[in-house]
Design a protein around this nucleic acid. Sequence first.
RNA 1: GGGCGCUUAGCUCAGCUGGUCAGAGCGCUGCCCUUACAAGGCAGAGGCCACAAGUUCAAGUCUUGUAGCGCCCACCA
Length: 884
Amino acid sequence: MKKETVQLDKVYKPNEIEDRLYLKWMSNSYFRGDENSEKEAYTIVIPPPNVTGMLTMGHVLNNTMQDILIRKARMEGKEALWVPGTDHASIATETKVVNMLAEKGIDKDSLSREEFLGHAWEWKNKYGGIIINQLQKLGCSCDWERERFTMDEGYHNAVLEAFVHLYNKGLIYRGHRLVNWCPASKSAISDEEVKHREVKGKLWYFKYPVLDTDEFVIVATTRPETMLGDTAVAINPKDLRYKKLIGKKIELPLTDRIIPIILDDYVDPEFGTGCVKVTPAHDPNDYEMGKKHNLEFINIMNDDASLNDNVPEEYRGLDREVARQKVLHDLEQLNLIEKIEDYTNKVGYSERGGVPIEYYMSEQWFLKMKELAQPAIKAVNDGTINFHPGHWVKTFNHWMDNVTDWCLSRQLWWGHRIPVYTCQDCNEIIVQSQEPAKCLKCGSVKLKQDPDVLDTWASSWLWPFAVFTWPKKSKELEKFYPTDTLITGPDIIFFWVARMIMAGYEFLGQPPFKDVYFTSILRDDKGRKFSKSLGNSPDPFDLFARYGTDAVRFGIMLMAPQGLDVLFSNERLEVGRNFMNKLWNAARFVTMNLTDEKYQEIDFKDVDLELPEKWIMNRLQTTIEEINQRLDKFHFNEAAKVIYEFVWSDYCDWYIEVAKTRFIEQKAELANTARAVAVHVLKKTLALLHPFAPFITEELWGYFKDQEDKDLIISHWPKVEPKFGDKQSVEQMNMLKDVISAIRTIRSSMNVSPASTADMIINHEGKNLSVLQRYERIIRTLCNIDEISYEKNIAKPDQAAVAVVRDMEIFIPLGGLVDLQVEKKRFLKRHGELSNIVKNVQAKLNNQDFLERAPENVVQKEKLKLDDLVKELAKITSNLEMLK
RNA sequence: GGGCGCUUAGCUCAGCUGGUCAGAGCGCUGCCCUUACAAGGCAGAGGCCACAAGUUCAAGUCUUGUAGCGCCCACCA
């Protein structure tokens, strides 16, 4: 046993212990999840951060929560496995690599696919490990031997197998369609990757000449340059104003095209002029109308959103913005602009590229979603999968009920290349995960693989099982799938969560997880979302260095309520730091007082404990219970609060203060019992706090653990011991605390120096006498009281300050120090409060309905309350009388 | 246009299943360097729980409206 007197530093210095402990955990393989274990499994798969990403405060929040769940499960004796890894993040990484190359003066277009991928892998190998190291700094107890990357060999195979499976099932098809196009990355993107922003712009009204007349049709647009691709003008068939236009044609300005006027109910006669220019190749609505009316589809853009050869020569090659100005200028010259209005509309932006998207006709691969969605919808709505907080179910349902086909292909190089091969000789299409040697139909070896790669999410949606051996069956997969809990941000509920659920059912027939916890969104103290462009996102490592990792973890847990945004500020981390320091010093105090080793022989569980010990043990049981309840519901902030208050308010403010009187007690047995209890409670506290603050708790554990104790990380999670559930001790201790506080209040309000002692008289009614007498010493020490005498039915002595505590009066003779005005003020305030409450309770008890309908125990409680209150009020009143 | 959420002390926010829930931290006031901790201790001031109806014996706590704020989704040129 380690009982030599150890002196802890006065101030907790987190940075000296963290790395050492992490290495110790690692070298003992404590993080390992063993698929051969008999223990019940508890599994989490990490939401894989982008491989080239850096740790953000969002990651800190998210991964601390996962670590809490994993560490708790491990301590509860489960086979805990947290699978870590990173995501190749196709478009995001490719963008970064392109930028990196550009800085070096290398143009992506000048490279071959292989050359580019060489650079990309180099980049990945250089930066891919950073975030992994950062997660380790945070203390994450992931099984690093199982680290996966969404493009490593086995995973790549899983992605291709999934594609082939879905293709063979007829769910994947190729189509020439209007898709969201990101001109920056020159790729299609999915609907979910488009973010709409309000943009202040203009609404331009153009005059289109009606063929063979002198008349004009007025159409409005926010995108003047698209007029070069117009192939019709539409009006509502019910719009009588334009009856005469039916059957007429338009001379499209700036071009030599004659375009028809069509009728369609889509047009809202109330909006604008009631006439709409139709650009089928560049607008989703116009696309639909184009198909319906068999219009011409004229693609007027290149893949970078400059204008192509389908427009008149003078516009070719111009960027869309430049083209817009030129179109406006040219129309102006022709006097074809009717008017210009200010207009605010929502413009779709590419999430990654950061530029307005185009709607662009192109050949893409799509996945039919309706069918896949069904089992997922069912699971989330029947409680097979539970969302926390539950209101996200509605968001999920809304999307799922309206789910559209998923555009899977991306015109990028970094990613999983689509496993579709076309025979150059006979046009046979071959879809398989292994590259075919020759055409299955004609035997030709001239096969060409589809150049596109898959959307990142088409690989990460397999994450919960592809991190194991899927599609191969194995013990691991069996043991650890389905996983238990997913913790992620609500911003990727569609991108990832919904799709993982679909994939889980489609490929394994089982849900990928049982609970999904959606974290808060972190904002700065002004309420702005953390973002790179604003530069308002703090660097977690600065914070770790400044406050200690445990403090950051604990602080952020404390401030992260369920389902709401959280305003983050460094100040709030100070709470965490202060708490760690408090804990450190409590432990320090205890070690300093372990002077008599005999305490180790005391089995306090068998002796009849004294009140303060009974009380703190009772509080410990309640605390264990509450932490369990809160964590079961994923209320991390409340669990943190519970442990915080127990440590600070119960253990430090009261028990340790009481224990001080014990340690200097003459009777060694009493002191040693107190030592034993102090150590016991502290050890349980360390265990309860370990998931939140793993470093400091493991470190302190080292000072208190017995020989048979394992390291804290694999020690037992505290169990509630009903033996210590003595409720009476709480009642009695609260009385004692009230007496002590009342005396302190008197001393403080009368400006009695803390250094000077005073005497006191307790005027009691017998009820609390034995407890008071027995623990007199505690009162004397904590209040600096010299003599205490106990009386019944005595009047207030002269020149004494008075406090009323329950059915007792406490008199403290202070001679000239008593300030009657202060005394009076205090009593008046209390009198006011009490009479209000008494009035309310009396009214309640006089209410016939209340007596009849409220449950018996509630009525009883009110009666008892009234009794106590009336007694207190009477004493206050009589004291006030005397002060007159 | 639809959906969701928020409105509780000066500030930032907790309050699970309706009956000691009116709370915490920071800030503020006073006193203390009391031999674990000044990143601390003790004591104190401060709120008709956004507003209005309703349900109930009982409502920050449930229902419905109103007003502000925020977010998500949606093709209005």
